[in-house]
Amino acid sequence: MKYSDYYAALGVERGASQDEIKKAYRRLAQKFHPDVSKEPEAEARFKEVAEAYQTLKDPEKRAAYDALGQRPQGEEFRPPPDWTRQHSAGGDEHAFDDVDFADLFARFGARGGRGGPFGSAHGGMPGQDFEVPVEISIEDAFRGTTLELQLSMPEYDDAGRLHRVPHAVKARVAPGAVDGQRLRLPGKGGKGFQGGRDGDLYLDISLKPHRLYRATGHDLYVDLPLAPWEAALGASVEVPTLAGTVNLKVPAGTPSGQKLRLSGRGLPRPRGGAGDLFAVAQVVVPSPLSERERELYGALRDATSTNPRRRFAEGA
């Protein structure tokens, strides 16, 4: 495991008072809490800060942490046997063999009546819930997909020892997931201990950016490039949809930015129906112009009465 400098994480001296530790935590938690912060790396920073606080706010855990001595952050590390014997249930010197540093102090009180949050007086400790962000493609949201997740969760064995255990989870996501959709997998979180129920796994779905489509809810938007004459005269053009190409009738006089709706061609809704696909017209000016095109545009200029900046004059 790698050593974590909890005092450095909170930005306090090793001799800091409990009050100083609490103030430092509150200041950093407000700054980095992932539910309120948009700072880059906020979630990782908050995790460090919360892990440090969970240990340092508890005098017993803090004393045990201090007894490990001061080491460089991230140094490969193994608790000394005498420390392990002293702090594990029943003096088991292998109790912390396959845990993360973060799990080391969470384990206190799991067995042996140390009185921590994991006491079993009420007949078991429920397993931990886990929340995992999952990115899927727009195609997967359209067709549905099966997610195969490889997770690592802290888990107690029958003897009360904590281990990091790999969890493979396979979950079928039906068509129709959108950005922000939450899914709950009951009982797929951390294992309960001594009869406690297993925790749940929550998946927070987000959609990967797509080269063509932009999603908002179940509606999709796609840019529809049009030649000036297609926009002016109208045309029938092919538009790619998630279910294949369809023909779209572009009305004469379609301006740039006009949204043309293809009903029911967006993402399916989980309980039936579907969002729409909007093709957003973008008039593309030919460039470079050939000599012939230049002549024809010149003739059009001379023949037309259109003034695209009429509103400027009206506003004067």
């Binding site: 195969e148 493979a168 989870v169 396979k170 979950a171 959709q181 709950r184 797929k188």
Partner: peptide, 27 residues
């Protein structure tokens, strides 16, 4: 070897009780 698991959509179509909300939230 993982077994495909039950997936519950947390959307407006699914109804939960106060007890379930207590259990899911930890409040």
């Amino acid at each position: 070897m993982s077994i495909e698991t039950e997936v519950l959509w947390l959307d407006e179509h699914r109804v939960v009780s106060l007890e379930e909300l207590v259990q899911c939230s930890g409040l």
